[in-house]
Amino acid sequence: MAEGVKPRVKAPKSASAGEVVTIKTLISHPMESGQRKDSSGNKIPRSIINRFTCDFNGQNVIDVTMEAAISTNPYFEFEATVPEAGEFKFTWYDDDGSVYEDTKAVSIA
């Protein structure tokens, strides 16, 4: 498991029903591409987060498949519709099988 992985999500705490909100996510992760070499010339093995999903009350908002060309500390910005009060669930899947999760509750204003 990559060390110091910390997801950060920026989402509004409240929204009006049916409103489209912007969500920004960032997760600290080295995203080792598998192309770099260490000082003795050996390839550093690939270790990246390969998938990110965002769901709201079980309904999918976005599902991203990532390749090695995504930068260190993968950042995503996208928009989601909030039909009712509930909870956003963010999930990141690591190459090594680890799963990182974060949730954000949204109330209806």
Partner: peptide
């Protein structure tokens, strides 16, 4: 690079 799939709640 990446593939974005949009679900039913994508704004």
């Amino acid at each position: 690079v990446a593939e974005f799939k949009f679900g039913p709640l994508a704004g």
